[in-house]
Every structure is written in structure tokens, then in C-alpha cells.
Design a protein around this nucleic acid. Sequence first.
DNA 1: CGGCTTTCTTGATTTGGGTCAATTTCTGTT
DNA 2: AACAGAAATTGACCCAAATCAAGAAAGCCG
Lengths: 248, 248
Amino acid sequence: MACEDVEPVSLQCNDCPIRHRAVCARCETDELERLEEIKYYRSFEAGQTVIWAGDQMDFVASVVSGIATLTQTLEDGRTQMVGLLLPSDFVGRPGRASAAYNVTATTDILMCCFRKKPFEEMMERTPHIAQRLLQMTLDELDAAREWMLLLGRKTAREKIASLLSIVARRDASIKLRAAEGRMTFDLPLTREAMADYLGLTLETVSRQMSALKRDGVIELEGKRHVTVPNMDRLLEEAGDDSDGGFLV
Amino acid sequence: MACEDVEPVSLQCNDCPIRHRAVCARCETDELERLEEIKYYRSFEAGQTVIWAGDQMDFVASVVSGIATLTQTLEDGRTQMVGLLLPSDFVGRPGRASAAYNVTATTDILMCCFRKKPFEEMMERTPHIAQRLLQMTLDELDAAREWMLLLGRKTAREKIASLLSIVARRDASIKLRAAEGRMTFDLPLTREAMADYLGLTLETVSRQMSALKRDGVIELEGKRHVTVPNMDRLLEEAGDDSDGGFLV
DNA sequence: CGGCTTTCTTGATTTGGGTCAATTTCTGTT
DNA sequence: AACAGAAATTGACCCAAATCAAGAAAGCCG
């Protein structure tokens, strides 16, 4: 339980195929059993709502496989995606009783859940977990603010290019593909989801995708499979050469 | 140093006129001396840049008086404000070497700074500080995401109304004015700053302010002094009845 | 007080992206 | 293979907000 070392990283559950990014590796040996005690799995089908904004939320969770989105909506139905959850991402927050956003599965998804109370107790006993969560939350805050720049000031074309480069990069990091230059990946989102993410309509998304294709910035096979012949060109189109803005 | 109590709140420096919201009241007695050791003040004039994005940042700080903004910019000069710092707000982050945003003083401002290294050491020794910072960061994240909805999906009029209601509320909470209904406050921002906050141009901001005035939603004396005769009406114009979205 | 700058307002015009509507292309399914 | 339903594209038109361009207020300072 005592955990004196410096660099907290991620924690590997016994039977989850991924490493959760939430908790402390150093404490792993001591806390793992306890973690196993309080955890359970839930799976959802594509399109299902995991939780509605405002609902009671008595667990925190880590995405094991699949993709989910965080969205907010106005009464008249306008919706804005405020986050994308990929495997190993963390949902829910200690010290908050109800969910702040709608969480929706966009593909079939498996989540590894921890009951909130015991998780919070574990946090109390294991300071590095709070520090690790702080780190992650600060990263998410940076990503959210990067997204604010995109939503407030970028053109439709720049928005699309930004999203594509983020997905490409995220995909690349998973596959450990170091190469710049040519890059191939599948879009995990429908045109509508992209629109909700970027503050556009799906028609505009479609039009700009076609325009980028016409101009040779991307190639499309089918609707979802994208290849970027020249990554630098795409980044240029995105309007900033920042190497980041991982909301993803 | 040991700090076993539950509810971390804020810390009162010996000679700052405000309570910083960053740290733990329970540890106050023990940590205060040390805090005094590592702290120093810096003041900036209206318009001055406190720090540029990417610069080395070897301190964290709390705003004592005045107002500062966090902004991001694209190469061609388009800028988006991503945060507003009011007295007692916290800037800078443990575990990060360089600033992520431009911080600019919009009024004369006094900041209470703590050198980062010792501050981080204090965090190590005082778990509740990390927990308190986590809490604050989660709140900021919520606010940023609320702002994403505004930037992505609200009309110019709704954006203005949202900003006004946030400033009104923040002002009200400072003055401990419980009354709903009629409300009076000074805008701490120029039209241009409002535009950068809302993802609009200053002309549009000005036009929508005039429109809200014409429609009796607000009254204006001079350019900056606003009174809201009916707070509910303003909230209605803001497009959501959420009682929050404090990016402020 | 009068000149000077900065901030703000208002008008005329343009345009990027929204809206509405009609196809087309992809999934499955039986 | 044929059909159905969902997802995506494309076109025609429109409108909210951007852009361009004067002026009007409000500070500020000698």
C-alpha cells in the first residue's frame, strides 16, 4: 500500500487484455487483489446508451474494447460531442454522484467497471492514484482546450483535416508505426458523429471529405477507409503544426 | 504534514487578501510556513503578457487581484480564449515544464507565485493537495466541455447571453447577492475579448449586445456596465437552463 | 478644454456553411 | 440475387455571421 516511487503509470488487471491508464504501477502488487474484488464487466451494443447525463453513476470505468462518445445536447436536439473514449480511456469521476454527459457506445463495447465507493477508498490509501488521475485529467483539459480552438476558429476544411490527423496519429501509435509519409486507417465514426464532434452538419463533413479527396490530400476506399499519402500535407491543411491536440 | 481529514478546501496565505483555492485547509497549520518560504509576488499591467505558450514555466500561481486570460492562437493570428482567470483561480500545472497557453493580463493584476519544484514536493507530502487539485481540474474540464457545446452549436445571440449570465452569476457569487431577478455588474472584458471567448468577431458581439438591449433583455450604461432586469429571461436566451458552465 | 487614441457601433456587402431534397452507395438479410 | 434500410453523396438555395468601411463615444493626457 505504501508507495514511495516516483513515476506512476498504468495498471494491468489480471484478465483485461489492456492496461488501464488510471492507476499506479508501483502499487499494483498490493492493490491488485483489492481491485479485482471491486470490479465487474459490462458490455454494450453499438448505438446503446451507456449512461444519460444527470443519471446516478455509482461506478468509474475503463474502456477495454470498442469506442464510446461523450455528448452534450441542448433541449432542441442540437448535440456536441465533447470527448471520444478509446480502449484504455477512463470514464467517470471520483467525488461526483451523477454523470455530466451522455455516454454512448458507437461500436460494441466492453467496459471494466469499478464500484465508486471502494475505488475512492483505494484512492485515499494510494496517493499516487490521485496524482495519476490528476495527470490524466490535465491532459484531457489540454485536449478540450485545443478542441475549443478548433470549434471556435477553424474552417470546415481545417476541422476535418484536424480530426483525420488526430485519428491517424492515434491509430499509428497503437500500431507503433513510426513512419511519417503514407498512412492508412479506418475512421471509427459515422459522418454524423464526425459532424457532432466538429460542430458541423453531416452534409458539410461529406462535402469537405470529397473536397480533400478531389485535392489529393486523402484517398478513400469505401466510406470509412482512409489513406493519407502525405501526412505533412494533411497537417498543413489542419491549420496548425502542433503535434497534438489529442482529444482522442 | 499528516492530514487525515476528509474535506480539503482552500488555503489562506498570511498576507494575501484572498484564499487560494488550490490547497488543503487541514494541512494549513503545518504547511503554511513552508508555503510562505517558497512564494513570491508578481504584478503585471493591463495588456501585458504574463507568459507565452511554449515558454519555460517554473512556477504555479494563484490570482490575487485582477483578471487574466488564457488564449491559443493559430499562425495567421486567429485567436481563441480558452479560459478566464479571476481572483483565487489557479494557473500552471505540476509536472509540466512549459506553458500550454498564452496568459495575458486584461487588467492590472497581482499574482501569488510558488516555485514549482518545492510546490510539487509539498504535493508529495500532502496527499489532499493532489486531491484538491484533481477536484479543481475536473471542474475546469466540465467548464471547458460546456464551452465546447457553446462554441460548436450555439448561435451568436445565445453565446452572448450565455457569457453574460456566467459573468453575472460569478459576480453575484462574489458579492453574495442571493437575489434572482434584477442584477447589475461590470463586464470585465472588451468586445474583442468577448469575441475571442465566443468564437465570434467583435462586430457581431457589438451587434448582438445592441439587439439584446433593443429587446429589453439587458440594459447598458456606457459600454461596460450591464444590468439584467430579468435573469430568467437571460437564461432562456442562453439556450439552456443549466445552472452552470462556469468556465469563469 | 481640445486634440488624440482606443473602443465601440452601425451600415453595406459577401460568403461559408446550413437547410432541404433527391439520389447513390453501402450493409445486411432472407 | 434481390430487396430493404442505413449511411453517404451531391445539388440548389438561403441565411447568419464574416468582412469591409465609416463614424461615434469614451477615455486619456498635456
